[in-house]
Design a binder for these strands. Structure first.
Length: 190
DNA sequence: TAAAGACGCGACAAAATCTC
DNA sequence: GAGATTTTGTCGCGTCTTTA
């Protein structure tokens, strides 16, 4: 089995911090906030692989571009963001060091581009969702308002017809009384 | 026993949000 | 609009454990 497995280099937190150019506690903080799984030695000390370090380097890059940790976390969780995978594959393919580096750099650049696209997509989706929600609320509100107006109109019409009916009945009553009087007068004269 | 690392907790500054 | 409050992203420090 020797030779078929490539021994992965492990970095201590102090080494990783130097490479990423941040303080050790920052790495610990990012690890907690971004929920990045970091390996532990037998003693419980953190150890960092090249892959971990590259992720942290990209996190730093994105932070410098103005992204907040929440956004970076969302992106990390929604992507299979593992730049080192390509490097390992490249090693297996026995490529030369230069070719490997070039390929990894290109791959990382490509992944970073995908990263950015994804962030833009998320922002776009949030805006779209908000618009749809607003539209839905507006439609619901308008439907309620229309119902209310129709209901009020029906009530007004009912009231109008009721009044008309009352007026007609009143007229009929007056007319009937007049007719009775007229009849009584005729009978009296006879 | 000093050095290195883990862990927890509080402090701090800047930005965002709320309240009057 | 200005001051108060909250949130975010660190930062500092003390304590404990392990190892050489």
């Amino acid at each position: 089995m020797e030779g078929s497995m490539v021994e992965e280099h492990r970095y201590l937190i102090s080494e990783a911090a130097k490479i990423v150019a941040v303080e050790a506690h920052v790495l610990r903080y990012w690890e907690d906030e971004l929920e990045i799984p970091i390996g532990r030695t037998e003693l419980g000390h953190r150890y960092y692989t090249r892959e971990n370090i590259e992720i942290f380097q990209n996190v730093k890059k994105l932070k410098e571009e103005g992204l907040q940790l929440k956004a970076i976390k969302a992106v990390l969780q929604s992507t299979n963001y593992r730049p080192e995978e390509d490097a390992r594959k490249a090693q297996q393919e026995q490529m030369t060091t230069e070719q490997t580096s070039l390929k990894v750099m290109q791959s990382n650049a490509e992944k970073l581009r995908q990263f950015k696209e994804l962030v833009e997509e998320i922002v776009e989706k949030v805006v779209k969702d908000n618009n749809e929600e607003l539209q839905q609320r507006l439609e619901e509100s308008m439907a309620k308002e229309t119902d209310y107006l129709l209901h009020m109109q029906e009530k007004r019409e009912e009231e109008r017809f009721r009044r008309l009916d009352e007026i007609i009945r009143a007229h009929q009553k007056v007319a009937a009384t007049k007719e009775k009087r007229r009849f009584r007068d005729i009978l009296r004269r006879k």
